[in-house]
Amino acid sequence: MRRTSRRPDAPPRAALARLLAVPALLTGLAAAVAVAAEASHEVEGRRSGWLYNSPETQALQDDEFINPGMFAVERGRTLWSTPEGSAGKSCASCHEEGSMRGVAARYPVYDEKRGGLVDLTTRVNLMRTELMGAPALGYEAADMLAMTAYLGRESLGMPMQVAVDGPARPFFEEGRAFYFARRGQLNLSCAQCHDDLAGRKLRGDTISQGQINGFPIYRLLWRAMGSRHRMFEWCNTSLRAEPYPAGSREYLSLELYVAWRGRGLPIETPAVRR
């Protein structure tokens, strides 16, 4: 498989002192890689899920030759320039190489034409149905996850930065309300776990801050890639709460709030999670 070594500019490094304070979990070269990565997984107290992973899972993510999510990225790279649909076009027919850099970091966005939020998945489907004459793909379709993984990878290292003002504001407020509302038979809100209990043990699992800078992720539990909305669905059903459909207004608004909550965290797609 082709693996380009093209990596975006390294994110700003934290003070050397902080790097040295990191307990050495690994030795040798692996430690150097892990420590360099550590510098970019926390921004003003906002912490990537990477920091809550075991050293083994971290190493799996950091090495792009063994990261299982890289298969999806490579597949997406191929699809990018493969014509599909009745118009006989590929993404590359209209978009220049490198033009997608930074896009994933500012999604979801408010879309004038649709009068609502559009996430990366919906954007890809709009391209397919309106400009390519190709059918829409499901949220978790392998080729959709491949494309969103590729687009995410194009923003590797760039800080998540979503717009929440103007017409996006009502959606943002809805997402925030969702995040703080208790739900399900277990009667818990997202905030109770991911704000208040991050770092604590929920049985075998260490609870993270529930950040979305690594999506789509390769989740070992799923043995598959999964979208942000699939993760929301998983957390909802774990609480025995009725989930919303992927792509629903509720999950798009939640996604906007959660992306803002993690503002500044560098994109690390495809993240590997437990």
Binding site: A181, G184, Q185, N187, L188, T237, R240, A241
Partner: peptide
């Protein structure tokens, strides 16, 4: 954060199954 083990009232969007 402790779940209510014997309560059905006032809960939000409980899965149909439960």
């Amino acid at each position: 954060v402790m779940p209510p083990y014997f309560r059905t009232e006032g809960l939000n969007r409980v899965l149909a199954r439960w």
